[in-house]
Design a protein around this nucleic acid. Sequence first.
DNA 1: AATCATTTGTGACGTGAATTCAACATGGCC
DNA 2: GGCCATGTTGAATTCACGTCACAAATGATT
Lengths: 317, 317
Amino acid sequence: MARFDLNRSAEMEVFVRVVDLGGFTHAGRKLRLTPSGVSKLISRLEARLGTRLINRTTRKLTLTEEGQAFYQRAVRILAEMEEAEREAASGAAPRGRLTVNSNIPFGMLHVMPLIPRFLEQHPDVTLDLVLTDTLIDLMQERADVAIRAGPLRTSRLVARKLGTSRMAVVGAPNYLARFRTPKTPADLAEHRGIGWTFPRAIRGWPFKRGDRTEEAVPPPAARASDGEAARRLALGGVGLARLALFHIGPDIEAGRLVPVLQSYNPGDREDIHAVYVGHTAPLPARVRAFIDFLAEHVRVGDPALKRAGDGRWKLVG
Amino acid sequence: MARFDLNRSAEMEVFVRVVDLGGFTHAGRKLRLTPSGVSKLISRLEARLGTRLINRTTRKLTLTEEGQAFYQRAVRILAEMEEAEREAASGAAPRGRLTVNSNIPFGMLHVMPLIPRFLEQHPDVTLDLVLTDTLIDLMQERADVAIRAGPLRTSRLVARKLGTSRMAVVGAPNYLARFRTPKTPADLAEHRGIGWTFPRAIRGWPFKRGDRTEEAVPPPAARASDGEAARRLALGGVGLARLALFHIGPDIEAGRLVPVLQSYNPGDREDIHAVYVGHTAPLPARVRAFIDFLAEHVRVGDPALKRAGDGRWKLVG
DNA sequence: AATCATTTGTGACGTGAATTCAACATGGCC
DNA sequence: GGCCATGTTGAATTCACGTCACAAATGATT
């Protein structure tokens, strides 16, 4: 059923056009409407308002007093509608405030370096970059995009893969000296781990055992709210942590952190995604532009760990 | 052909309702629309603007930046539309400037006395009373109502009869002394008349000859632009004039003007009408109110002329 | 984890309101 | 008085819009 039988905006538009052009036929031509269409529309408007707006003969149109007042208001209102829609539609060109939420390691190391170039390319965009590792509700946080590592929870969110990062379980030398380096995943039960204060999609750490992947995790001695905090804890010798190679690569090369159980999880990786809220409606252009920009420019080096002759680890590739 | 398929005002209204009530379903209930209807409408709007206005899950709605701006503007625009229509529709209660055009004799003697009461009853109406006897174009003069005596030219104008006035052909005593009182209409050819500067629907003066009505008119010695001017000319002895009894009754009773040829036109009358511009669209309330007021209160006395015993004329009835 | 209640999204469909078409009135101009 | 342009009216037509039924998703509840 047609509930909205009155299009006030169309009525106003036609009315204004009629007044401007001084005739139903002229207005009709401009509006691609037949004269009779115009006539009925105006009559409808007048009937609804309960008063006459235009005195008309076949030759002349004159506005009643109501008509004049209504005309002036209508012109203003139409202009404002136009502007409102134009401004809203300007979301079709990248501009406005873009809110990005990223996990801390990736944000620090891979997103922030790109920001200057992005802002340079889109001067009308201002950017709010929030770094958190906790799970967030995109809508509640009013974030346009979130960048997350690891498996995604199913939802109506759309994820665009930005890259992959190898993971490594590491410990500080002084920690390993105290607790002995684990030889098998089962040894982890005797170790101390660094966990997370927020729930992750996977509980433990994946290790390969033949063809199968098993999860194991040392009992947590501490929990960190983000990857950087976890790294610091690991550096401090609190326990073992599973972190991204792009994050702790330098620490490994410098010998501040030592990979363990490498042979059990050589292919342990986590995908990194930009996540946003789906295609039920067109995406604001600034969001689209940012995601495209990330997908194009983010290069997560995916180095492998090799043990050098002197026993030290190197990142190669 | 291109139809008016977009109803921007409705879209705005639905959008605002959704934001206010915080949900498609709630808004739908208020607007007597199904949730899916609301969903489609919003999607349509977003598609047209090319950007998303509302981030939505089944549980929460959040406005995008564009959505917030659009919401604020939309609220204002809707309010202004409301006000524009309300003000225009307030033509449904009598108010505003009412322009009335009346011929001079009737206007002076019968309309003006009623004005104070009318304005008292309708305090929001201001009145422009223009007195002219010349034919006017209602629309060109931007007049709402015209009051005219005599036959009307056919047009799309609507006429409402206000009354009837007996007419009389009169001359001043000094004129009649010089030219002799006419005994038959044919005698008028030897007389001098007072005509009009503007064309009238009937050319001459109607006289009964048996069952038939003939027209006759004395050659004009002067033309007047209005009835009052004609009366003055007649009083001055310029010639014969055909004037309304309500106009010159006092002159006749006082002997300043003398009726002639009374036996040939005892029923000579002219109807007096209020004329306005037809029912293609509703009439502004002030116009309707004024016409109704006139029709109710105007009482054109329709006296007959009687010759008293002393030879003087009296108005009776 | 699993169920339930609630809400939004999608495709097919039918309705009816709006527009067109054709014919007629009106006004101004020569 | 006839011609041309314009506005109006009634009936036929059509196409956008909302409904319907169903699917998917979300958050609360146990």
